[in-house]
Nucleic acid binder design. Structure first.
Lengths: 145, 145
DNA sequence: CTACCTGCAAAACGTTTGCAAGACG
DNA sequence: CGTCTTGCAAACGTTTTGCAGGTAG
């Protein structure tokens, strides 16, 4: 069993989340391919496996609450993606203003430097920052030509 | 006439947006007090002035398209706020995970440093970044005690 | 006067909820 | 076996749309 799956199972246990066929189907979607999904997309991907849209929403909320996945809002859209367990909770996404496509950004080293600035904000606003979500908007490689 | 108002009028002209009583009411809300509003809040604030909710949505979309205001999505909520015309299009917001309050962050110098990193992203992803939206999540000054 | 804008109400959309039937351990 | 979970359909809140009447220039 991989370390990742073990970690996921521990988190589910810790939150007293029992195992069901539907929850496993949804979770494996996130684990198999680490990308972002809309609730509706998940529903359609799992069509035929007998999972109602209400269950999709209920499961997503449950996984979010126990910190396994995170929610990203971009305009009218809402996505969910696997949450990085190991380290810094920083996420960078890019949305093309022309074609509307939405990309993840993975280069963690580049992102690292953002973190140092968080302390300034914490002091300025007298808050505790746990999560950083950076959304970039512009033109993607195809549309910018 | 202030430089700001002049600038706004020029942008409206440039986009061929004609003047109406309703559009003026909504725009002055943003200009008078530079904060973020939900469509519904605008509708309620202007209640009694005879502005339908459909007009609020249509006007917001129109002002957004011509770059006068910008949209911010946080979970289920959608806000609109005046867009900074002069310089860098960087916006930092903070949402408290406990009480749900949503704050603007204004310390531009602190934010400035974020900009340098954008170039790395542009090169990595082969995109052009026009807008940067940073959402921080954590505990606000009241809730963190 | 013409073209565009508006309010209204209905429709569309994403999300949530109540409930009876079913699955889990 | 009791409890928790599910699918369905209805309810909900937000956003969009069609249309007849009104407004701007």
């Amino acid at each position: 069993m991989s370390a990742e799956v073990e970690c996921v199972q521990k988190m589910l246990e810790d939150h007293g989340i029992t195992h069901t066929r539907q929850r496993e189907e949804i979770l494996s979607l996130f684990i198999m391919e680490s990308k972002h999904y809309k609730p509706d997309e998940i529903f359609k991907l799992l069509r035929g496996k007998g999972i109602g849209i209400a269950t999709v929403y209920r499961t997503l909320e449950m996984l979010r609450e126990c910190g396994l996945i995170k929610e990203i809002s971009v305009g009218k859209d809402r996505f969910y993606e696997l949450k990085n367990q190991e380290s810094k909770h920083i996420y960078v996404h890019f949305k093309c203003n022309k074609c509307g496509k939405f990309f993840d950004y993975y280069n963690i080293e580049a992102v690292q430097e953002y973190v140092s600035n968080v302390e300034t904000v914490e002091k300025d606003m007298n808050v505790k920052v746990n999560d950083v979500n950076i959304n970039l908007y512009g033109l993607c490689s195809k549309c910018k030509c």
